[in-house]
Design a protein around this nucleic acid. Structure first.
Lengths: 209, 209
DNA sequence: GTCTATAAAGGGATAGAC
DNA sequence: GTCTATCCCTTTATAGAC
C-alpha cells in the first residue's frame, strides 16, 4: 500500500501535492479570518501537515500570504477572460452580456471575500493593491473599454472617451450594491437584473447613436 | 500648579478628558493598523495612559473598538448632512453640488481609512456593516434620492424609481476610482472633476425632461 | 522532507499599591 | 481612578530525531 501513511491533504482528502494543500488551506483561512486572525498552526492543521513543513515551503507567514494572494489573483484573471466575441450583437444585447459577465464574479462570495482580504491587508502589503486591481477589476475595465472602442468604430456609439464610458457603465452596475456587499449585506441576483437593465438604458440614452 | 503631573493626553498634549484621549489614540491606531495588529499596549502608550486605565474605561479590546467605530460613524454622519437647499437651482448645477459634497468625503483619506477598517472587521463584527452603511453612504443615498423626488415633482426629471436614479448617479461618481482608492491608489482631485461633469451629462441624457 | 517538542516573544487581561 | 508589575495564553519560528 502506498497510502499506509496519511498522504492525502486538506479536509476532503484530495491528492494534490502538499504545496497545493498548504495554499488551499491558507486561502480558505486567510479569506475567512483575515491575515491577523489566521495562525500558522491553523493552516498546518487544516492542510494536514505539520507547522515545520509550512516553513519548509515558505520562509514565513507573510511570504505564504503573498503567495496565496498572488495565486488567487491569477485565478480571478482566468475567470475574467471575455472569450466570446460580442461584435456581431446589437448594442443593447452586448451590453447586457458584458454586464452579466461583470456582475457575476464581482458579487460572488469568493471574490468578495478576496477583495475584503486585499483591502484589509493593503496597508501591510502595499504592492498587493495594484496587483489585485490589474489582474481583476482593471482587466475587466480594459476589456469593456476595448468593446466600447470597437462599438464606436462600428458607429454604434459616440464618445471621445471610451474608458470613461466603460467606467460609467460598470460604476452603475456596482452602484452601492457592491459596497453593501463588502459590508456584509446579502444582495440577491434578481434585483441585480433590474440594475443591469437600467444601467443599459441609461448608458444608451447618453451614448447610443 | 495644576499640571505638576502630566495630565495632557495624546501626542500633541491636548487637554481633553482621558476618555477622549483613549478614543483618539484608538481611532488612529485602529485605522492605521487594523484591529488585529493594534495592541492595547500601543493604544495606552499613544494615549499617554496606562493599560489598566484602558480597562477602567472599557471592559476589553472589542468594546473599545466598537466605541471607536461608533463614534467615527457619528462623525461621518455629521459631515454628510446636506443642509443647503438645492431646490431653487437648475438641475445641472444642483447635481454638480450634490456630486461634490459626495465625492469630497467619500475620497477623503480619513473616511477611506475608516471604510477599510470596517470592511476588514465586518467578519468579526457583523453588526458594524449596517451601522456604518446607514450612518454614512446609506444616508447620502437617501438624501440624493430625496432630491430626485423633489426634482421629479418640480418636473425637472422623469423616472419611476428615484432611488435607482440616485444609485446610478452616485455609482458613476464612484466609478472604479473608489475601488482603486480602497486598494491604496492615489486619486487626484482634478480628475474627479471630469468624472463629476461627465456623470452629470450622462444622468441628464437619461432623466432630464 | 516530515514530524514532535520547544524556545522566544508579544499581547490581553488583572492584582494590588497609592 | 491611576499606575506598576505580573500572569497566562497564543503565536511565530526553530531544533533535532527519523
Amino acid at each position: 500500500m502506498t497510502d499506509n501513511k496519511q498522504n492525502s491533504c486538506g479536509p476532503a482528502g484530495s491528492r494534490a501535492s502538499k504545496d497545493q494543500c498548504v495554499l488551499d488551506a491558507a486561502r480558505q483561512l486567510f479569506i475567512e479570518h483575515g491575515f491577523g486572525a489566521t495562525s500558522m498552526d491553523a493552516i498546518a492543521t487544516t492542510a494536514n501537515v505539520s507547522k515545520a513543513t509550512l516553513y519548509a515551503y515558505y520562509p514565513g507567514k507573510q511570504a505564504l500570504f503573498a503567495a496565496t494572494a498572488q495565486r488567487e489573483c491569477n485565478r480571478i484573471m482566468a475567470q475574467m477572460e471575455l472569450t466570446e466575441d460580442l461584435s456581431e450583437l446589437p448594442l443593447a444585447e452586448a451590453l447586457e452580456r458584458i454586464a452579466r459577465s461583470f456582475v457575476q464574479p464581482v458579487f460572488s462570495p469568493d471574490i468578495v471575500a478576496l477583495l475584503r482580504m486585499v483591502i484589509s491587508e493593503v496597508s501591510r502589503f502595499p504592492e498587493l493593491g495594484p496587483i489585485y486591481y490589474d489582474s481583476g477589476p482593471g482587466l475587466m475595465h480594459s476589456h469593456v473599454a476595448d468593446y466600447m472602442h470597437r462599438a464606436r468604430e462600428r458607429g454604434l456609439i459616440t464618445t471621445d472617451d471610451c474608458k470613461l464610458a466603460a467606467a460609467q457603465f460598470l460604476g452603475m452596475l456596482r452602484s452601492d450594491r457592491h459596497l453593501q456587499r463588502l459590508l456584509g449585506k446579502h444582495v440577491d441576483t434578481t434585483s441585480l437584473e433590474v440594475t443591469i437593465a437600467e444601467a443599459v438604458k441609461t448608458f444608451m440614452a447618453r451614448y447610443a447613436v
